[in-house]
């Protein structure tokens, strides 16, 4: 039946999609501002405040039990001073991404709620693993984990027919969704689509690389360690049965990635415990952004 995979120019397809979600202007502004090491909290706050909806979401989040601060934080400037630039940027980005994509799509054939549950889970697990490994890029790991499967949303919302075929193949062959995608998309997967999307958004090359390679991390990449974190986080969240990644399987963890993280097996049960708690906290965070 499928002898030759169809020749597909994925980039052309993605480029031709009109109405692809863009990151809010404010995120691009903030990212640019933060490239200057001398930028002040007040400047960042001013940029964020230009988007009233986002600003009030951030304030709601920082005052919630997610952060657990004892006294009320009333201004964005104050929030930035307390949480730090990186944390606020990550909060703003997560809130924006989640809002852009969590809308109701009547034509959706995908379990969106399960998808977000899985993505939030991988974000939380990536954060815990990065912390444990004493990596600097804890917030980046969280964001990358959150975004790693965005390609699936693009497939669902903009490439309906191929996606429908993909889900059918998953059902009949009982395979990983990536395997089904390769058959229908000429060797490409949601990882490639997601990478193209965040590239269009002008995000750091780090995010592009992590999303592209999260199923098959490669030591040739500059971002091997953080990609391995998201790769392992993905396997853990699937194993813990959190959310719905589109299939019901647990993939084998890439041995190179596992060695790179060098986790002592004795500490694994405790790691699962921390992941479980972080996932609960993070879910609260997103319930607040949805409103």
């Amino acid at each position: 039946m499928e002898n030759e995979p169809p020749k597909i120019d994925l980039k052309r397809i993605i480029d031709s999609i009109s109405g692809l979600p863009t990151l809010p202007v404010v995120i691009t502004k903030v990212t640019k501002l933060m490239q200057n090491p001398k930028v002040s909290a007040a400047e960042i706050a001013q940029a964020i405040s230009s988007d009233q909806a986002l600003a009030s979401k951030i304030l709601k989040i920082v005052n919630s039990s997610f952060y657990g601060f004892p006294s009320r934080i009333k201004t964005i400037t104050h929030a930035i001073v307390i949480l730090g630039f990186n944390s606020i940027k990550a909060t703003a980005m997560s809130a924006s991404i989640f809002s852009s994509f969590s809308g109701e799509d009547k034509d959706s054939i995908f379990d969106m709620e399960g998808f977000w549950s899985h993505s939030i889970g991988v974000g939380a697990a990536s954060k815990i693993l990065a912390k444990r490994l004493k990596m600097k890029e804890v917030e980046e790991a969280f964001l990358a984990g959150l975004m790693h499967d965005l390609g699936k949303v693009i497939l669902d919302q903009y490439m309906h027919k191929p996606f429908s075929r993909i889900l059918d193949i998953v059902k009949t062959k009982k395979c990983l969704i990536s395997e089904a995608e390769k058959i229908v998309l000429g060797g490409h997967t949601h990882a490639d689509i997601g990478a193209l999307l965040v590239q269009k958004w002008n995000l750091n090359p780090e995010f592009v690389a992590i999303i592209k390679d999260h199923n098959a991390p490669t030591s040739a990449s500059d971002y091997f360690k953080i990609t391995s974190v998201v790769h392992v986080a993905d396997a853990f969240i699937r194993a813990m049965d959190i959310g719905n990644p589109g299939d019901d399987l647990i993939p084998k963890i890439n041995p190179g990635a596992w060695n790179e993280l060098n986790i002592n097996p004795v500490s694994l049960p405790q790691i699962f415990k921390e992941i479980s708690e972080e996932v609960k906290k993070t879910e609260i965070f997103f319930k607040m952004t949805a409103s």
Partner: peptide, 19 residues
């Protein structure tokens, strides 16, 4: 059930036991 297809892999076995 979910681990049985991959339980022969030593890493996945370790993960299974810990989980």
């Amino acid at each position: 059930e979910r681990f049985s297809p991959i339980i022969d892999d030593p890493v996945m076995k370790t993960v299974f036991e810990a989980l």
